[in-house]
Amino acid sequence: MSALRKSIGRVGQTPAVLVLVVALAALVAACGSTAATNEASPTPSSGATVAEATWTEADLAGVETDPSLTAALPASIQSSGAIKCVSDIPYPPWEYFDPPDSTNPAGFDFDLSQALGKKMGVTVKFIDMPFDSILLAIKGGKADMSMSAMYDNEERQKAGFSFVDYTFDGTGILTLKGNPHGITGLDSLEGQTVACESGTTQQAFLTNLNKQFAAAGKPKMQILVLPGQPEALLAVKSNRAIADLTDYSTALDVAKTTGNGNVFEVVEDPAAPYDPQMDGIAILTKNTALVDTVQKALQALMDDGTYGRIIAAWGFVPVESVQVNAGPAYAASHVTKVE
């Protein structure tokens, strides 16, 4: 994360952040699985019963293609008729496989990507890839863009990426059910082993937090960096780590759906979610035709009500207008305006 909270202790929560908490909590109610999960495995699962009830294949078929957007796409995409969109799966409720033992993508990012493809008149191929390989794949020409709950921040922009921002999230602490280690907030993590997924903003968050611990004369954490969310959950379940730092929305969903809600819980801290951020569609900045066209397509979905329906189906926080590289500044101004 580009902007870590300056205070490590329990920080008072603004009404705006409270609105984000309520909205993300509503997400769990919207996305809770109706199917029993496998208690032997911590792999996250997320049922899509509510999303399917409010956003269906028939709804997708009803999205009207805009030929002017098709014509504005890069020539290579017009020729192939497809956009290669990479995503780290599973990471519910953003993306997951349905059923879990299949390779059929589902989730909020998937639904929105398919609507964008329909609006632009091309197929969006949703491709599974480890999170820490996503930006490298786009830079190397193996993919065109990514929708993977990725924060739009200054570091990634400086690395040559632009973000078409489409919702908000923040960071939460996920631990075992019953909170056996008595975690109350970030201070509780000092001197402990904490898991996170490689290449995420949570990894940077923990690294910066360790610097603050050291400056305050407190014992540093051992940061257990793992290749994916399933591995991070397994580390917590096997007591290799006392907690997993992950997106707040994902923490809520995992706690709700894994083992019928009996395996994990989200630490209740008035300061959470930590540092609300913008999530964006990552595209190479130099690929201006694709950045501009995706922005216009998303705005068109907003104008015709499609975006609102998908956002409501999954319970995420909507943006007011489609912007590029708005990042943390927009997130802060947005939540400030919400009373």
Results as ranks from 00 to 15, higher is better:
288 T>C: 04
301 L>M: 07
310 I>A: 11
316 F>R: 11
325 N>A: 09
280 G>I: 08
268 E>Y: 06
273 P>K: 04
280 G>M: 12
292 D>W: 05
298 L>Y: 04
313 A>G: 14
277 Q>L: 14
309 R>L: 07
300 A>F: 09
325 N>T: 07
273 P>F: 12
282 A>D: 00
275 D>T: 13
303 D>R: 06
297 A>K: 01
281 I>K: 09
273 P>Y: 10
315 G>E: 05
279 D>I: 13
277 Q>N: 13
301 L>Q: 04
321 S>Q: 13
293 T>I: 08
274 Y>T: 01
283 I>Q: 06
300 A>S: 14
272 A>R: 01
322 V>P: 08
274 Y>W: 12
286 K>W: 01
316 F>M: 13
277 Q>C: 13
287 N>T: 01
274 Y>F: 15
272 A>Q: 13
319 V>S: 04
283 I>D: 05
320 E>L: 14
284 L>S: 04
295 Q>A: 15
317 V>D: 02
321 S>Y: 08
269 D>M: 10
311 I>W: 04
320 E>D: 15
295 Q>H: 05
295 Q>R: 15
309 R>D: 09
300 A>D: 01
316 F>A: 09
290 L>K: 04
284 L>R: 14
272 A>C: 06
290 L>I: 01
313 A>I: 04
308 G>D: 12
302 M>K: 15
296 K>V: 09
295 Q>Y: 03
